[in-house]
Each structure stands twice: as C-alpha cells, then as structure tokens.
Design a binder for these strands. Sequence first.
DNA 1: AACGGGAATGAAAATCATTTTCATTTGTGA
DNA 2: TCACAAATGAAAATGATTTTCATTCCCGTT
Lengths: 121, 121
Amino acid sequence: MSRSNPRVLSTLERAGGFASAQEVYRLMQREGESIGLTTIYRSLQSLVNDKIVDVLRRDDGEAIYRLCGEAHHHHLVCKSCGDTVEIEGGAIEKWAKVMAEEHGFRDIGHTAEIFGLCAKC
Amino acid sequence: MSRSNPRVLSTLERAGGFASAQEVYRLMQREGESIGLTTIYRSLQSLVNDKIVDVLRRDDGEAIYRLCGEAHHHHLVCKSCGDTVEIEGGAIEKWAKVMAEEHGFRDIGHTAEIFGLCAKC
DNA sequence: AACGGGAATGAAAATCATTTTCATTTGTGA
DNA sequence: TCACAAATGAAAATGATTTTCATTCCCGTT
Ligand SMILES: [Zn+2]
Ligand SMILES: [Zn+2]
Ligand SMILES: [Zn+2]
Ligand SMILES: [Zn+2]
C-alpha cells in the first residue's frame, strides 16, 4: 500500500476537515498545487485505513472524507449541505455493550450516524 | 413525472423488500420479465417520491431501496465469520431524535451497527 | 558518483451506477 | 378512428472511483 501524501491531509484540514476527493482536487488545483487525482484517492483511502479520517456518503452517493479527532464520537450530518456536528453517543455506548453481551459477542465496536436537514436547509 | 411500474414494486417485495436497482433488474431478467433498466430507475424514484420506499446507500455508494413499513432494526455483525443478528435499536431511537432536535435538525434518519467477534469465533 | 530496487506518482483507460436523450410504442378520451 | 400525452427502453452521456502501467523519485549500497 501507499502512504498518504501530506499535502492531501493538509488540504483536507484547510477545507474545514470535510470534503470529497473531487473537492480536495479542485481546491489544490485552484491553489496552484500540482497533484494527480489518483494520488488524492490513494491518500484519502490510506488516511481512512489509518483511522485518521472517516468516510461517509452524501445523498448523491459521493464519498466525503472527514477529519476526525481522537475522542470517540458520532455524527449528525445534513443531507443537503453536508454540515456536520460531532455528538456524544450517550445511551448508545451502553446499548452496544448490552446487545453484544446478550448475543455472546466480544471485542466490539460500533458506528452510529444521524442524517437529516439542518436548520439552514 | 412517470408513475411506478407495478412489476417493479412487486419484484422489490419478492426480493425481501430490500435491493438495489441493478439487483431488481437482474432478478426480473432471471424471471423472464422484459423490462428496461431505465424504467426500473424511474419506478424506484417514483416510489421514493411517494414515500412508499426508502433509499439508503451501501458502503460502496450504490443506492438500495427499502420498502417502508419493513420493521426498523439494526445489526450485530461478526467481524470474522460475517454472522449477522438483527437487533432492536432500543435507546438509540430516542437518542437520535433528541440529538437532532438539540441541533435544529429535522426529517432525520439514522444508522447504527455493532461489530465484534461472535461466540463461535 | 553511479547503481539498483522498491515506493510514489499521475495520465489515460476501464468500470460501473445512474441519468439523459430521443425515437417508438401504448393507452385513453373525444 | 384520431390526436395527444404518458410510458418505455436502447443507446449515449455523465461522473465518481478504480485500475493499469510507464515514469519518476528516494535511499541505501558499492
Ligand atoms: Zn444543511
Ligand atoms: Zn459510540
Ligand atoms: Zn463469528
Ligand atoms: Zn434505529
């Protein structure tokens, strides 16, 4: 596998930590950086593998990459404008544990996302 | 706009109420039905507009259409053998609603999955 | 410095779901 | 029967993502 090109991560940060591969590409072009789209896809994929960014899907199916902090959290995402709020899992954390025990599962993780329309949309 | 071709809805039901457009197409072909892919996309879109089916996204970005009224549930998946258990959302359902309200989001949906190692693995 | 091999890069082609175009067929009411 | 709108689907277009593959870059060794 390949390692992430640092300029890609840097651009994702500059984009507000939330963008599609195509958007990162256009942004870098606009700023005069010379890079291939392929490298952007590869770098983002590598960042996902390393759990440095999350990947979600827009309503239209395009993948959006989001820089994630260390702390475990969940997302509230606007279906229309892509605005994202990091939220606490609250009751989910216990729910996951209880459900897993109940069915004999161990070594668990979980994902939970909420999608909807934000106040502006 | 166009109205939904009834054979498409019937096929989606027969598929367990959960399939992509391409899967509906392949299923109808296998059963000897003559229909164009375009009509399937149009019909599914129309069913979505009429709120007869939901549309979600697979991890790979492909749209999957789900008959509304299918019981809402979540999954507990084994990372190793792929075994899957359908589970109730429990506290999650209220969590999603509360979190959304708190941030001014409306018209929401959510996803939540737990993954781990099952008893056999 | 010259060499060599593996990693990184990116242009171009391939893939694949979905949408658009547009010519043809079908249904329906006057 | 006629006219006309809606429905259909083949084919082309679109657009994101992946694959291919030749070239370039990096780095340690001779
Ligand atoms: Zn919004
Ligand atoms: Zn959590
Ligand atoms: Zn298992
Ligand atoms: Zn739920």
